[in-house]
């Protein structure tokens, strides 16, 4: 199949002024790809280590509870909720709603604000109790 070069091309990223809906769109993909690799491998490692025995599980547990493990977990928490809230927005748009400019923009911003707030709400108490335990 050959494209007719005489037909116009849709203007791409370099033409449009960036808006919240574009940021959320690319964040949905980025968080999806990130979780597919990082959370996917972590999930497999966790289960395989648990099935192999206590010693293998200890290896996983040490990495997961290191500062690096917590950093990755915080990042994945944010990615999870960003992807989740953005997906809920997609469900609404799938039925043809939420395309009015103002509604669309507000919902896009809400997914980003929501994901950051929920991540903070989950991790602030955990990090606080960790800091207490370390004293």
């Amino acid at each position: 199949m050959s494209r007719n070069p005489g037909r116009p091309l849709s203007p791409h990223l370099t033409i449009w002024r960036w808006g919240p809906h574009m940021v959320v769109s690319i964040l949905h993909r980025a968080t999806g790809v990130g979780m597919a690799i990082v959370a996917g491998l972590g999930f497999i490692w966790w289960l395989v280590a648990a099935a192999m025995g206590a010693e293998a599980y200890d290896g996983f547990y040490k990495v997961a509870t290191s500062w690096f493990g917590y950093l990755v977990a915080i990042g994945l928490t944010w990615a999870f909720f960003q992807h989740l809230f953005s997906a809920l927005r997609h469900f609404v748009m799938d039925v043809g709603a939420g395309y009015e400019l103002k509604t669309n923009k507000t919902a896009a911003i809400a997914t980003m604000v929501g994901s950051v707030i929920v991540t903070l709400l989950i991790w602030a108490p955990i990090l606080a109790s960790l800091a207490k335990g370390a004293e």
Binding site: G40, L41, F43, I44, L47, V48, A50, A51
Partner: peptide, 17 residues
């Protein structure tokens, strides 16, 4: 390969436990 292999590893481990 990643999706099927990874899922197989995870499911086998769950069932083994």
């Amino acid at each position: 390969f990643y999706a099927i292999g990874g899922a197989a590893l995870a499911i086998f481990s769950i069932l083994k436990i």
